[in-house]
């Protein structure tokens, strides 16, 4: 019994310690961001590995999610004779929820895990402490550009996901199931609000990009410098990111759409 309490206590302390370290780490990153504007090419190169390399999976998943939404939505709506509302159904589900959430989950799996592994390996091969000894702060030189890149890439990827998804739903709805294209777009435009729906979706994706990149970089930086440690850290990135995304999505949704 005492043992249980003790290990619970140790676990709790450990968690708080990590939380604290994670926040200090974040402060350090944020302090490094202004300096990046002088060396923006560092960020550009990271946007390539964080954003561009995630594009393919986002495009394909977005297209298929949209197509499935089109099919499923049609089958449900047609029973009420409301298949013209397919556009609304698809655009609201994608723009408000699926776009930001699914693309963030994919981003965590594709880019987040790669970031953790990269940073963890740099740590375990002493590249980070090598930099420190060359009087180069690795958090400013290595971590902050990656953080910035995540912050830039995530909303763009989410927007691409939603746009491709809507096109996919249109292809299925109009091309395959014969929904009137005028009704599809005009109903969608009438019911989708730029500020309430689209901007809120963008805000969500910025928040997710912030959190996922932060988690990924912290896990890499905090990893035990062994192959096993880096492997575990990579797993933790994906799991913690998924929890963070889903939890935050609930909170953000309640805040944004709660009073309607």
């Amino acid at each position: 019994m005492i043992k249980l309490i003790r290990s619970l206590g140790r676990w709790g302390l450990g968690t708080f310690e990590r939380l604290g370290r994670g926040h200090l780490f974040l402060m350090h990153i944020l302090a490094g961001i202004p300096g990046l504007f002088l060396r923006f090419s560092l960020v550009i190169h990271q946007v390539y590995s964080v954003g561009v390399l995630s594009l393919l999976i986002i495009l394909i998943s977005g297209l298929f999610v949209g197509m499935v939404l089109g099919l499923q939505g049609y089958n449900t709506l047609v029973d009420f004779g409301a298949e013209e509302s397919l556009g609304v159904l698809v655009s609201l589900s994608l723009v408000r929820e699926l776009g930001p959430v699914v693309s963030a989950l994919l981003f965590a799996g594709r880019a987040g895990s790669a970031l953790t592994a990269e940073i963890g390996l740099m740590k375990s091969t002493e590249q980070l402490s090598g930099m420190e000894m060359m009087a180069v702060d690795p958090i400013r030189r290595v971590i902050a550009p990656r953080f910035m890149a995540g912050l830039i890439s995530m909303p763009l990827l989410a927007a691409i996901f939603s746009a491709v998804g809507i096109i996919g739903a249109f292809l299925v709805g109009h091309g395959l199931l014969g929904v009137d294209d005028g009704a599809f777009w005009s109903q969608m435009q009438a019911k989708t609000d730029f500020y309430d729906d689209i901007m809120n979706g963008v805000i969500k994706s910025v928040v997710f990009g912030f959190v996922v990149t932060w988690i990924a970089l912290f896990e890499g930086h905090d990893a035990t410098p062994t192959s096993e440690g880096v492997g575990r850290a990579t797993t933790r990135t994906v799991v913690h990111s998924a929890f963070a995304i889903l939890g935050l999505d609930f909170v953000l949704t309640a805040l944004m759409f709660g009073d309607e």
Partner: peptide, 26 residues
């Protein structure tokens, strides 16, 4: 530290840069 050089046991080269860029890095 700018005035201290250190040669690590493992070398600690930056693996995403070439030999040339590694030496040019500092």
């Amino acid at each position: 530290r700018k005035r201290m050089g250190m040669l690590f046991q493992s070398g600690a080269l930056l693996t995403d840069l070439t030999v040339y860029d590694n030496v040019a890095f500092p």
